[in-house]
Design a protein around this nucleic acid. Structure first.
Lengths: 258, 258
DNA sequence: GCAAAAGTGTTTGGATTACACCCATGA
DNA sequence: TCATGGGTGTAATCCAAACACTTTTGC
């Protein structure tokens, strides 16, 4: 085996909600970029690139996103550092390729942000669950590197975190109906939620306040519009405060999958 | 600013339970190593070292731990990748030092494993909350690099995760009383738990089974001994399975702090 | 017997669930 | 008027907390 250098890259999984191509229901989509050099040339991969010495990790993620997809997500969180020694080697390719450790981030963008995205020859938006493959479906075309594993992990994190953190609001614009908020949860969790109970839970959480306005133009009773009144928490470790009050329980953390 | 190279290192926060020096109650301890070179020479730091090209990230963490502290933890999980551009620069030191990105792991070891640990001039075990500093106490001697932030984050992760994952068993040997299991939770959460309710919750979780044996030599009723019958889950993203059954809710993931 | 912790029982209140039912609008 | 979701009410259920009480050992 030849001498290897370890190279650091930063990649990002970006989630957005768009109508499903067949059902029309809100569904998780994400952009992929086509690799234009070896290894895995021609295959689809997560947007990313090498870490520049002058960039922080999250800054690198944002900079690469802007350059490759034109996106600037307002929710961005570190997912995991992937560093298996053989993860950058093609199964049938040369075994002596450079070793790459990737720090992967995941992001959420609103529909209005996603609409501004470029969609050229080398960027393609796909339904997230079609990319990883359904349990009963055919195996999809594999992603470059271990990006299939990365995406599965990002989906698991998103689905876990929406249950205990107000990240669902990152998919929504300033004003929204409670039905729209419920559709975000339903799209992420892939299961219907009881509208009555969902409404009560959200209102009890004190996370939203009515704006007084209503959505018009529907063929039924005009739903009230709400706005978010809590911050979407940052998962940055530097924001970790002093030890919590020992008399109150701690909330779940961000980083992994049970 | 001179040209910088990005170097990748792996460090580990290792937790063990030992009696508190004054109260005698089970308390979180961790080993620190003294830095023998610049930057931060002479200050205490988390055990770690540069990533070797032939090691996976977790392998690197284990190898460095063995070499510096003699420890081989049976629970090891990735915490976070720290990569701020200035994190390896001393506040009053030279500003042109090498840039280091650290992938940090955290680990749990049992008392019998911790007893085998070396405790030389350059390794010192400390009470975890004394290292980060109590809210009302004096500020402790700062750790090297951003390891104070790292440790605070690791403590937050441990305290969050013990609430929804059976990691408490990683602190215990094969046979244990339910009181010992409760003391693990109390030490981590820093608050007393109701023995009656705790017992019921643990038994209802189906995570333990009685061995039939009892602990003797106490000055009261001999408590029954139990053993763990569930696996301590690995947080490795490669273990993420196919999308869960959409009709059942998802459990919290591992990676972050609310 | 007494102290101390093991272990059991009971009550309470809050949160979740399921589902019935009314409301307001466009067509 | 009817269809469609918005929005409210309510009862059943589960779960966590608080705490009284009994049991079993060493001293």
């Amino acid at each position: 085996m030849s001498e290897q250098r370890v190279v650091l890259a930063v990649s990002t999984v970006i989630f957005a909600l768009r109508p499903h191509p067949t059902t029309g229901r809100p569904t998780l989509w994400l952009p992929l970029v086509r690799r234009i050099r070896e290894p895995y040339r021609g295959q689809w991969a997560l947007p990313g690139g090498p870490l520049q010495p002058e960039d922080d990790l999250a800054t690198s993620a944002r900079r690469t996103l802007e350059r490759t997809t034109g996106l600037d997500p307002h929710y961005l969180e570190q997912l995991y550092a992937f560093g298996a020694v053989d993860r950058s080697a093609c199964g049938d390719g040369p075994g002596s390729s450079e070793r790459v450790v990737s720090v992967v981030y995941w992001a959420i963008i609103r529909p209005d942000e996603a609409a501004r995205a470029v969609d050229g020859d080398n960027v393609e938006w796909r339904v997230a669950d079609d990319v990883v493959g359904r349990p009963d479906g055919d195996q999809p075309e594999p992603l470059a590197f271990d990006h299939g594993t990365v995406l599965r992990y990002a989906l698991a994190r998103l689905r876990a975190k929406i249950g205990y953190s107000p990240i669902a609001y990152a998919f929504l614009t300033d004003e929204f109906t409670l039905a729209a908020l419920r559709e975000v949860h339903e799209a992420v969790l892939q299961r219907p939620l009881d509208p009555a109970n969902f409404r009560r839970q959200v209102l009890a959480s004190q996370a939203v306040a009515p704006t007084g306005r209503h959505l018009t133009g529907t063929s039924h009773r005009p739903p009230a519009l709400y706005r978010r009144v809590v911050a979407i928490p940052s998962a940055d470790p530097s924001r970790v405060t002093a030890p919590a009050d020992p008399t109150s329980p701690t909330e779940p953390d961000t980083e992994e999958c049970a």
